[in-house]
Design a protein around this nucleic acid. Sequence first.
DNA 1: GCCAACGTTGGC
DNA 2: GCCAACGTTGGC
Length: 147
Amino acid sequence: MKSEPDVFGYDDLVRVKREGWDGVRNYQARNFMRSMAKGDEVIFYHSNATPPGAAGIAKIVKTAEPDPTQFDPASKYYDPASDPADPRWDWVTLGPVKKLRFVPLDELRSMPELTECRLLARGNRLSVIPLTDDEFVAIARAGGVSR
DNA sequence: GCCAACGTTGGC
DNA sequence: GCCAACGTTGGC
């Protein structure tokens, strides 16, 4: 799951303990969130950063439910087309697991385990991207966490 | 700041 | 249903 560290980085997640992943306004990304189970772990990736890369491991502490920002006219994520009786957008709630030794994008690209990884695919713009178990473990290990 | 990628919108 | 225009993402 990607976040811009200038807006909300892994250290922010550690500080606040849990965070609703608001603002996802892409159906594919939403559907990936809907498929997540409580306790599932994710790589917290810093996008639009210098450098970008994997910053930590987080976990799902609450499964998908409607993202309240879609109904808030003051929110930049407000979606007037979303019907409260049939909400269009969901969020999941994340909690921190373990901060990684930062694994920059360059290093991720050099890892043979990640040659097929959708995160590294050209033109990829999805903010929520599925990883295989092997991909997850490889990134975690590169960040100093083995399991 | 630039640009490629790509999802969405809206005219037809 | 097609497709051009537009907006956003995200690496560089």
